[in-house]
């Protein structure tokens, strides 16, 4: 999916999910405050990565909000490519998974966005 403004799109999804989760979980405002930084860090990462797709998801069971980057592969030069490390230093957890023979998904998770 293409987003003109990743942060705005993330805010929209969070707003929508907060309404759906009403009565079960409530939005963690402290976590919401780091969203802008995480989105900026994702945009910075995209400058060094040939990204195929960008997406975001909500796990309504755990209350985790994930920003997802789909690409062929990721190669990080540990001494120079600060963008990747900048992003993982803000995210609570991150994970790599296979989509198909040519693509991987990197999910940067903000845990307990809803508690």
């Amino acid at each position: 999916m293409e987003y003109e403004n990743y942060y705005e799109a993330a805010l929209d999804l969070i707003k929508e999910s907060t309404e759906e989760l009403e009565g079960r979980m409530s939005l963690n405002k402290e976590k919401l405050e780091i969203l802008d930084d995480v989105c900026t860090a994702v945009e910075n990462l995209l400058q060094i990565l040939e990204c195929k797709n960008l997406d975001m998801s909500v796990n309504e069971t755990t209350g985790t909000f994930a920003l997802e980057v789909v690409c062929d592969e990721i190669i990080v030069q540990t001494r120079t490519d600060r963008e990747f490390f900048e992003l993982i230093s803000i995210a609570d957890t991150f994970k790599f998974s296979k989509i198909d023979d040519d693509s991987i998904r990197i999910s940067f998770n903000i845990d307990n966005m809803w508690e």
Binding site: D72, E73, I74, I75, V76, Q77, T78, R79, F85, F96, K98, I99, D100, D101, D102, S103, I104, I106
Partner: peptide, 12 residues
């Protein structure tokens, strides 16, 4: 990660 020279992640 800082001990390694690079990190690669790719599909098998």
């Amino acid at each position: 990660a800082s001990f390694a020279d690079n990190i690669e992640v790719y599909p098998l």
